[in-house]
Design a protein around this nucleic acid. Sequence first.
RNA 1: CGGGGCGUAGUGCAACGGCAGCACGAGUCCUUUGGGAGGAUUUAAUCCCGGUUCAAAUCCGGGCGCCCCGACCA
Length: 423
Amino acid sequence: MLQSRLFAKTRKEELPGEMSAGTRLLLRAGFIDQTAAGIYAMLPLGLLALQKIEKIIAGKMDEAGAQRILMPALVPKKNWEASGRWNSLDVLYKVESRQKTEYALGATHEEIAAPLVQKFALSYKDFPIAVYQIQTKFRDELRAKSGLLRGREFLMKDLYSFHIDQKDCDSYYEKIKQIYFEIFNAAGVGHAVHLTLASGGSFSKFSHEFQAATSAGEDTIYHCAACGFTVNREIKEDYPQCPECGGEEFSEEKAIEVGNIFKLGTRYSAPFSFEAAGQDGQNLPVLMNCYGIGLTRLMGTAAEISRDDAGLIWPENIAPFFAHLIVLEAKDGETDAKIRSAAGKIYDDLQKAGIGVLYDDRRQKSAGEKFGDADLLGMPRRLVISEKTIAKDSVEIKKRGGKESKLVKIKEIDNFLKNENLG
RNA sequence: CGGGGCGUAGUGCAACGGCAGCACGAGUCCUUUGGGAGGAUUUAAUCCCGGUUCAAAUCCGGGCGCCCCGACCA
């Protein structure tokens, strides 16, 4: 992508300090734009990062044998009434309609997923079934806050699994628990994520949350000093002792809930009389689990935990582009043309080699401004080509967040980027 | 939903009840080019409704909006 054509510009000035630091950086860097409280537009770079996250998650869901679908966002009142949530789920945006039928915008999709799968899953032979979607969710939060971390509209991956025996149900739950860690590791935030025992809310006694530790988080979690077991504050008072090892010392930390998994039992299958024929002809109750990851929240979390004073530092797998190629203008027109020509070729070659490149081809911008933008935008590698480096047929390569930079021959860039580790 | 703060050029801020100003940005021209360059010039604003007043960005009432703390959080 040519930076000269990127319509979303960066801002040099710090934003007022009342928002979370990661949110300020995403806004300054032009990744997102606020439309209203808790409602954000994804700008080109932000969308690219979000798509990288989506790709990671979808790939892992596919690996887990889940089938991707897309459920409607407009959910009829009767579905919510079947589960009793039309009145109890207070975050529902209820939609006015000219028709008699009433709707609510999807805040979660148990009420769609259960009757949908029910239509096709009639026999024990059809189970287990896992379906997932990546879709915008709508929740009328009393207080939206911290940018992408708690919005009224956000992108979520929700997976629903259906089983006819408890053992299978439990083992799939454990499988997804592991896969969630693989997802957070791939997204570059795994080091901060703690599996946390939490309340099941209206669903079940317990659930498991994936909590990313950062001071910007709105949840408080407690780590057992002896064994590391983590519980959410909401159930901490029920456990003066660690439920795992009996330890009594805990350390406290703020965290962002980036994922949550629940065993639902028959909570959402029973209201729809979702049962399946068993081997002996008797109907069996269908057990259901649900598993969520907030994609936009995960993006906000990455911005929150991976940054420095100068800007964002994107984990490689979710960076909009791996490389940020910067051309510095030379005063001599002939040299300048030579530099630009070389830069253009590098840009093309890297893309052909499958390396994403943001090319800062802007004219009339000082070196300082370009470097400042590169730090702010936070692509993993910065490549500088200038009068200085072209004289040696080289570019200067630096890792974002690292200290050293290296001169690399133009011919060797591709190889260097794929193999070399910079400090 | 309770509490607090704020609402002025595109952005960030200023202005005693009395001519709305500064910085950044953006446009044009010239000079510059390895950590956010310089000069000249131009551009552009008081959230909405009502009230008090000779006079309101400023005071009062109401509304709307944004941020923060708390409560809430499938």
